[in-house]
Nucleic acid binder design. Structure first.
Lengths: 351, 351
DNA sequence: CTCAAAATTGTGATCGTTCACAAACGAGCC
DNA sequence: GGCTCGTTTGTGAACGATCACAATTTTGAG
């Protein structure tokens, strides 16, 4: 068949250029928003792109030396599904995917996830491999990678902008975080306003930055109300440990009438103990949680909780990275507002 | 500095070739597992790759006309986080990410997620755009896209292998599914074995393939035990509706003593009603759920559930796609075994 | 009307890899 | 030893975009 060419793939920039009667570079300029294109030509190129259904090939763009239009989100790798789900609440990733993809897509970018070992020796190598193979334009580090200075340094060496979730000390990075101190304070003050003075805080892990900040906020709110007794229990984010810790607190001479748990799973442990001992919630024991996974609405009773705005945080990280790459400017810090959602476990009626 | 060149990026295949003293093509052969390389040379190349920390650039590979080493997972796009989380249980995506990434990574592949509108007119276009920009080597369609024949056709036109999750009719596609009929049968027989004969099934949605199959399995198990009364309630996967439906069933003259819910959220509704009416679970009302999100272990009491093996399904889909691309062969169907996990809501002790 | 400056458009080189094909090498057979 | 055939290695072209720079057109001031 004379003149027929075998096409390895779909519509290319040359096809658009040929259809309009301009060079590929002019089409490229339109794609990349260069100002120096005659309005009439720009119009015709847009029409041709639409008509032909042209979409730029991401790999080719990357090869051309331009941007990759890819944001890489780094999560910690775990071995089993159980560990993965227990990691940081099982809807953390769900929210990441939603928030991140929605934000990236709105700008014509893509979000790619990669798992990297937390172990420092493997972490650097894992990130380096991901960078080499994907060549992202920006990287998001989630906990606990966000606290790994080595990874931040590696990204700086490569000149790749970095956003950190749940970290607030950065100067060279985009830090996106919520005010953990204020959130714990709000939860504590909510209970104090309801008349409680024996309020326990079940911490997740001493070495987690967020736990320490929350304990500080809790203590500050108590102090502010003139309550001298802080009742901090050492949990590990898991049900069984929390059960023991809460049981021990309740066995004291002057037991708590309210519990703040560092995540939902531990709040469920509080409900479970209350149920087992015939304590009414919230009358005998009020419960507040940090996290607000969808399931807490269906607990018996539904849990009052500080909502962790994960989707918003990731969306903000993506938007900021994109803005940084496309518009220049300097990395900034973004505090995302938290929310205290009052439900039946502290006496409110709503679900 | 004489001879110094400005490097736009990291280690390339040429660097490895130069270090070993061979041509790039020989290194490429080693990377792609070609058999025709002298063992001694292969050895030295592997050593150099290791020493230099070389990782192939994915974009360049794709440009070279080879594979992209990318599996694209298509999910339905929704507008709000609430809808996203309510979609199919909030840990569906969590499991997808874990199962899919783990499987892909093991083969040196990558998993990329993309959101595509469910609306038929936009769906085709959304997928076409994703294909054009990412050029994946394989695509996974999750519900409800898995049932969209138009998308399957589009992939066939492009010659891109396709795996469908939760679909079992495919001939040209890799279909990965669980035996919904048998699972519902197992749940039903479990309750019958515990002495129940008034067993209700709260369906999720009539037009969901899986709901219909589960109802069939439920009815078959009843018939098998000589129980003539099937008590099917029409739910919509949501708490509030399920609450009404279950209340109506309990108001009957001869109310059910057991409820099977089509997802966890509706099972929580059953627990909630029981708690509100002072019915003991499992003594007065036994509850079985389909889904087994992590939270059901912390319900009061913990829920017996059919575990939906989402992570395994996605992992299987990825592995099969990769095998198909790398090894040839024909698409096959994969039935993933389900599991009935017995907990306190049907009388068992474990969590 | 002329000419310089600004705006617009086009051309070759380039990114890092694989493909297609050609060349060199080595073993086995008569 | 010479020849063929299979194994191993190398070379130029290609993929589809962007970059750097050059060429052309348009604009506007004198």
């Amino acid at each position: 068949m004379h003149g027929a060419m075998i096409r390895r793939s779909g519509v290319t920039i040359e096809d658009v250029a040929a259809a309009v009667g301009v060079s590929r570079q002019t089409v490229s300029r339109v794609l990349n928003g260069s100002p120096n294109v005659k309005p009439a030509v720009r119009e015709r190129i847009h029409a041709a792109i639409e008509a032909l259904g042209y979409v730029p090939n991401l790999s080719a763009r990357r090869m051309g030396g331009g941007r990759s239009y890819v944001v890489l989100a780094i999560n910690d790798r775990v071995r089993t599904l159980e560990n993965w789900q227990a990691r940081r609440g099982n809807d953390y990733v769900d929210q990441m995917l939603f928030g991140g993809m929605t934000a990236c897509e709105a700008q014509g970018w893509h979000l790619v996830f990669e798992l990297v070992d937390t172990d420092p020796a493997h972490a650097r190598r894992g990130l380096a491999n991901a960078l080499a193979s994907l060549r992202p334009d920006g990287v998001i580090l989630t906990p606990p990678h966000c606290d790994n200075a080595d990874l931040v340094a590696l990204l700086a060496e490569h000149g790749i902008p970095c956003a950190r979730i749940g970290h607030r000390e950065g100067t060279s990075t985009i830090d996106v975080f919520m005010d953990e101190v204020a959130a714990a304070g709000a939860a504590t003050r909510h209970l104090i306003a309801l008349g409680h003075s024996r309020i326990a805080f079940i911490a997740g892990a001493a070495n987690y930055g967020s736990s320490a900040l929350r304990i500080a906020g809790y203590r500050a709110a108590l102090a502010e109300a003139g309550i001298s007794d802080a009742l901090v229990g050492d949990g590990d984010f898991h049900f069984e440990t929390a059960e023991r810790v809460i049981a021990a607190l309740l066995a004291q001479g002057d037991p708590p009438t309210a519990v703040i748990a560092d995540n939902d799973e531990m709040a469920f442990a509080a409900l479970h103990i209350a149920s087992a001992r015939g304590l009414r919630v919230p009358e005998d024991l009020a419960v507040v949680s940090f996290e607000d996974t969808p399931g807490v609405r269906f607990a018996v009773p539904p849990l009052t909780a500080i909502r962790q705005p994960v989707a918003e945080m990731i969306a903000s990280a993506c938007s900021s990275l994109i803005a940084l790459v496309e518009g220049g400017g300097a990395p900034a810090r973004h505090e995302i507002p938290f929310e205290l959602i009052c439900r039946a476990s502290t006496g409110q009626d709503q679900r």
